[in-house]
Amino acid sequence: MHPFIYHRPANVNDAVTLAAKGPDHKLLAGGQSLVQAMKLRLSSPSDVIDLGSIKDLSGIKASGSEVTIGAMTRHAEVEKSPEVRKAIPALAALAGQIGDRQVRAMGTLGGALANNDPAADYPAAVLGLGATIVTNKRRIPADEFFKGLFETALAQGELITSVVFPVPKRAAYTKFKNQASRFAIVGVFVAESSSGVRVAVTGAGPCVFRQKDMEKALAAKFSPESVAGVKQAASGLNSDLHAGAEYRAHLVTVMAKRAVENALK
C-alpha cells in the first residue's frame, strides 16, 4: 500500500468537499473493494475519505411501499433486517449471499453500487426492483445509473446517500456462484410489481442489464415455464476461465426460471 492522507469527515458536506478535490481523493466505505486494490498497489489514492463517522448515511427505513437503505448500511445489516426481510425478502437474501461473513460485516450498499463490479449482486436488485439511487445532488433511476464495466452515472466527487427500493408483489434472486471467488457468474433478479415485471441480470455481461424478452414473457404469465424457453444471446457476454459466453447465456435462462420458481414459493 502506498502512503495516503486519511480523513474522517463528520458530515456529508465535508466529505463531498474533500471528494471534489480530484480523482486522487477516494471515498472509503466498507473498504472491501478499495482497500484490496490499494493493498495490491493497483489503486494509490493521495487522500482517503472515510465515510464511517457519518451517521445519516446508514440505516434502514420501511414504509408501506418503499424501503430506504442508507449508503453505508452493511450487507449484514440488510441481510438481518426484519424490515427488509418482511418487505423485500429477496433483497435480504441477496445481501446474505454476498461474499463471506467478514465481507458482509464491512461491505456497504453504496460502495457496491459505486464500484459496479460486473459480477456484483446488488446491481441486480437495484435494477430488478427499479430502485432509485439518491446522491448528495440528485435522484438517479436505476435504469440510468449503471453505465458499463465499473462505470456509473456518478460524477466525480458525487456521493450516494441512500437507495430507495419500491416494494414488489414478489421477487427472487438466484445466483450461480463462481467456485473460486463466489461472485456471480450469473445472477438473475426477477420482480413483479404493480408497474410490471423486471428481470435484471448480473455477472453475465460487462454490466448488469435487463432481460426484456423475459420481462415480456413473464408479464404475459408469471410462471417458470414462461422463461424456460427464452434464450439469452451469447454475443457480448463475458467469457473467462470459469464460464464461456455460451454457458453464461444458458445459465441466464436456468437462473431466471429458478428465480421465478422461488418468487412464487
Binding site: A180, S181, L241
Partner: peptide, 16 residues
C-alpha cells in the same frame, strides 16, 4: 498465471 489468487484458483470449501 491466470489463476493467480483465490479469486480464480478454487480450493474446496466446507460446502463442497
Amino acid at each position: 498465471l491466470v489463476t493467480g489468487s483465490f479469486m480464480d484458483y478454487s480450493i474446496p470449501r466446507a460446502t463442497d
